[in-house]
């Protein structure tokens, strides 16, 4: 029971991280029609930005700022230099150009910071743990991630449903050309949305630092899971991204937590662990295949 509660919280934590990435990815796709493989690079840049700032200054607040700044500036440059030219292109061109960007950013990080993974210390006030149920301690930093993630989800909801910019975002997601025809400065809107996506990805990267290692290729690992989230949730839908992210996060974590144990009854320990890890890695993809069998456009399709 205690283990289950812990695993559920871990799943929730992975889920909100995936949501931060998926929200940006799905908005950028919904509004600009661009599939951006380099979204994971922004996550990596944010993580490196924060890790390096933390190492130099020792301040966690400055690290947060540094990470957000790095991801935001990189995102804006990416939009200005490359992605802006891809809006009118087909998906194949977008995939290839952003694949080129991944190669560039991964190597750039190697060049700047080397291949060694970096470890980031926990912020001082969140090194301890909290008893979620009596007798079950849980790291408070992970609770912080969950809280931040849910707060961002709520903030996004208010931004998209209750503000003028949000109205334009929603309008853009349903009918791009019409918004343009009505005289909205679509370029500014695009830049804003892309910048927001970059900041969210950067934030996810910053928070991931102390939990996972900061290393080259971290962006692609999580990006592919984010794709699964976006496809399950329905492309272009932020609500779908939240639902899909939590579902994928919880399912993935529970499988990882329990499948190797179940297999140990059948195989010898080392084989069971390896096969269990493999099967649980496959789990979310099987989940995606099942969802698509029933709803090919995802659970909350944006353009219904």
């Amino acid at each position: 029971m205690a283990l289950l509660a812990e695993q559920l919280l871990n799943g929730l934590q992975l889920g909100v991280m995936l949501f931060l990435l998926a929200a940006g990815l799905t908005l950028v796709f919904g509004i600009m029609g661009v599939i951006n493989l380099a979204h994971g690079s922004l996550y990596m840049v944010g993580a490196f930005g924060a890790a390096v700032t933390a190492q130099v200054t020792g301040s966690w607040w400055l690290a947060l700022l540094g990470g957000l700044l790095a991801a935001g500036v990189t995102g804006l440059l990416m939009e200005l230099v490359v992605l802006r030219r891809l809006y009118a292109r087909d998906h194949l061109d977008q995939v290839l150009a952003t694949f080129g960007l991944i190669l560039f950013f991964n190597q750039l990080m190697v060049l700047l910071f080397g291949r060694q993974p970096r470890f980031v210390a926990l912020p001082a006030w969140f090194t301890g743990s909290v008893e979620i149920i009596p007798g079950v301690p849980y790291p408070s930093y992970r609770l912080l991630i969950i809280a931040v993630g849910l707060a961002v989800a709520a903030g996004l909801y208010v931004l998209i449903q209750r503000t003028r910019v949000g109205m334009l975002v929603r309008a853009g997601a349903t009918h791009r050309e019409m918004v343009r025809a009505l005289g909205v400065d679509i370029r500014l809107l695009y830049t804003l949305v892309f910048g927001l996506g970059a900041l969210l990805a950067g934030l996810a990267g910053i928070m991931a630092g102390p939990v996972f290692n900061v290393q080259i290729g971290m962006g692609e690992q999580i990006l592919i899971q984010t794709f699964v989230v976006v496809v399950i949730g329905g492309i272009g839908s932020v609500r779908g991204a939240l639902f899909g992210a939590l579902l994928v996060g919880v399912v993935d974590t529970l499988l990882r937590g329990f499948v190797p144990g179940l297999l140990r009854g059948l195989l010898d320990a080392s084989q069971a662990d390896a096969l269990g890890a493999a099967l649980s890695s496959m789990g979310v993809y099987v989940l995606m295949a099942l969802v698509l069998l029933i709803k090919p456009r995802g659970i909350f399709p944006a353009h219904a």
């Binding site: 599939i35 699964v228 993809y285 099987v286």
Partner: peptide, 27 residues
């Protein structure tokens, strides 16, 4: 069953699935 971006992402995801399967096949 899907098309467009979904198709791109799904083919990628299935390939990842096989990738993890072979990573796990210690034999």
């Amino acid at each position: 069953r899907t098309s467009g971006v979904q198709f791109i992402m799904i083919t990628l995801a299935f390939a990842q699935m096989l990738f993890f399967l072979f990573v796990g096949l210690k034999a």
